[in-house]
Nucleic acid binder design. Sequence first.
DNA 1: ACGCATTTGTTCGTATGTATT
DNA 2: TAATACATACGAACAAATGCG
Lengths: 262, 262
Amino acid sequence: MPSVPPPANTAAAAASLGAAEASAGPAFSPLYRQIKALMTASLQQGEWRPGEAIPSETDLAARFKVSQGTVRKAIDELAADNLLVRRQGKGTFVATHAEEKVQFRFLRLMPDSGEPGGMERRFIDCRRQRPPPDLARALHLRANDSAVRVRRVLSFRGTPVVLDDIWLPAALFKGLTAERLSDYQGPMYGLFESEFGVRMIRAEEKICAVAADAASAALLLLPPGAALLSVERLSMTYGDKPVELRRGLYNTAAHHYRNELN
Amino acid sequence: MPSVPPPANTAAAAASLGAAEASAGPAFSPLYRQIKALMTASLQQGEWRPGEAIPSETDLAARFKVSQGTVRKAIDELAADNLLVRRQGKGTFVATHAEEKVQFRFLRLMPDSGEPGGMERRFIDCRRQRPPPDLARALHLRANDSAVRVRRVLSFRGTPVVLDDIWLPAALFKGLTAERLSDYQGPMYGLFESEFGVRMIRAEEKICAVAADAASAALLLLPPGAALLSVERLSMTYGDKPVELRRGLYNTAAHHYRNELN
DNA sequence: ACGCATTTGTTCGTATGTATT
DNA sequence: TAATACATACGAACAAATGCG
């Protein structure tokens, strides 16, 4: 009978690490979740950049002094959170908004018939501006912080469909100009990610039906009072820190907002 | 050197089961996914009923002749799909729409301020009716199949907010009456599940902004032409079979449709 | 074209921890 | 307290996909 190998040693490590439960903390965190937190920190600090491959599971296991299976479970959750993308035989990669597939995650407006297809962008303006109090609060800005306001129209085959009014903390987006926005090909979040190091992780949307005011109606080539979809989006980066507040007005005459309930 | 124990035997089982790849099938399915399919069948056939506990992981492993870890991975995915709910120390249970927490999954309308709170229901009518061609097609109904049409108003503190127009395949909902709907306390999907054995698994929604027509405006106590949110929902049961088409008109003056983008 | 190394994916087994009854 | 069930953690082996020489 082969001598049974001694029991795993890492239970002790889990206990000691998990023992940061003294005060009113989250009590206890399993080892794989602690590894997940360490890896999230590496992502946040830019040790692993969008699009790049992270170290292999074996390497990470050695680095963190845990088994490969524990690293695997941490990566599983990060992949479920859309922070990482696994590719069999190639490695695990940091998710990026520059990819084709990822765009549908934040782009929910679909034509009633036909393929999603890209829309033409036209930037109306992009300027530094003091945000109204409610916006400042939503973005966790302090009294004197200013914001960058971007307004744009998206058109589908020549017809304007979306009017976006986007507010960003100026401190994070220094040097953002209409020209830079126009020059960049690809999704805006790709630009934010590569040029400003701000990665959108998650967002919450509040959707209402509203009547178009005169200004919006003019930009969307609609009669004033037309029914529009109002989509207010608060986007968060690592640590659930809000970094974008966007108010979109959608003409849903030939498009709809698509949602999946699971 | 201890003699290494022989390799696991179940790889062979996986290969033989997975060998159902002869024709143009999905080629290959890992063992845990085959187990998942078997378990889904047990759910669909009613062997395990909503709210009940399924057998323990150990029992299932014995039943399917696989390791406990493989069963666990199958359950993990079924739990991620919201078909099962795990409860440590108690067991794994079949998800049910009768539970408190589950309701928020299909109920996305929130008051702009205050708690979600329940709304009062009033059923306008419930009758057997021939569906228009487009509805029939969406519900996969044949030429002569009829449908049950339910219309209702949901009110929040006395103010009507939602006007629902719901179409169901008559064959699946024999004996559904306005009285039965009124008598049942709790969510409608709970009634469908317990009384008709139809469990909603997943849904797709298309959201638009529309102007209220005269009839809808009257029921929602609004002026004609008011902007309303139109939410068209197609709900699916096991096997992605469509079993409900619902058109809702929401007054978003004091409410909004909430969505999370992950 | 073939094989090899690397990396993730699957499966098993075992031991131990935590929660519930 | 004991029994049961899910949760965590380790290790080992093989499969499948990829890329390189």
